[in-house]
């Protein structure tokens, strides 16, 4: 990987409610302009790792008990989520978490407020998002709660992109979606990496799809990293399969 990674995590340990150990000894790096995936079964600690990075873990009574998270060369263990978003690090939550009673467009707008843009800038940003997800433009006035699962995932990703991020933490984008939609979403991720310099750290159970779009992958098992490597290497070693099936 390149010399100055966008994100670098060293040996972090996350504890919930002061007693529940969720992950330990997690170290990983995300280089600029890359898609890195975090693979693993249910409960292996993917979401916790992402929330530790974005600072959301603090809102759920978790804490980073050990280790260090560096973003853009700065330690961000205790940064509030809105500060990180301002610096270009944003998370898309597992299960989409759209604002159900807001329209699709209002959902997107909420993501764009962080830099206090002018009205023209905000609208330009909105047009960008509609460029990535043309479908959203057609349903922009509908309440997000009434749109389909795929559309909600697009809203959630589009909302995060409104803040003009450098790094997006994407938690289970494929969850509950038709294979075709999943493919569509990963194509957009690839496009953003190739043409807009956005990097992604994607937590996925669906390793088959994720690996096809991934530059580098980490395999999580029971809260620690059990394997890592390029997509090709992960595909060849049996570690991934073993981590899903148990041994």
């Amino acid at each position: 990987m390149s010399a100055t990674p966008l994100l670098s995590i060293k040996n972090i340990e996350v504890i919930y409610e002061q007693v529940i150990l969720a992950v330990k000894n997690i170290s990983l790096e995300v280089a600029a302009n890359s898609v890195v995936s975090l693979l693993g079964a249910n409960g292996s600690g993917k979401s916790t790792t992402l929330k530790a990075i974005s600072g959301l873990v603090h809102a759920q009574r978790g804490e980073i008990a050990d280790g260090q998270i560096e973003y853009l060369g700065e330690v961000v263990n205790h940064s509030a989520p809105h500060r990180l978003v301002k610096q270009g690090l944003v998370q898309v939550l597992e299960g989409r978490h759209c604002f159900q009673h807001l329209s699709v467009e209002e959902n997107l707008l909420t993501g764009g407020y962080i830099h206090r843009p002018s009205k023209a800038k905000l609208n330009a940003q909105l047009d960008n998002i509609y460029g990535y997800f043309p479908r959203l433009k057609k349903i922009r006035k509908s309440l997000a709660g009434y749109t389909s699962g795929g559309e909600q995932q697009m809203v959630a990703i589009g909302r995060a992109l409104m803040s003009d991020p450098k790094l997006v933490l994407l938690d289970e984008p494929s969850m509950g979606l038709a294979p075709q939609i999943v493919e569509e979403i990963f194509e957009i991720i690839k496009n953003l990496r190739d043409n807009h310099g956005v990097s992604f750290l994607v937590a996925e159970q669906n390793a088959a799809v994720a690996l096809r779009y991934t530059d580098y992958a980490y395999v999580l098992e029971n809260g620690t990293i059990s394997d890592e490597g390029t997509a090709q290497k992960i595909n060849q070693s049996g570690e991934l399969l073993a981590s899903y099936l148990g041994r």
């Binding site: 809105h82 159900q100 009673h101 993501g111």
Partner: peptide, 23 residues
């Protein structure tokens, strides 16, 4: 207003509001 829309977002889903950078 932006503040108003953000307020409605917080009522809907506080965690997601945090995630998109709402203070």
């Amino acid at each position: 207003t932006r503040t108003g829309i953000a307020l409605r977002a917080v009522a809907d889903d506080p965690l997601a509001a945090l995630a998109v950078g709402i203070n």
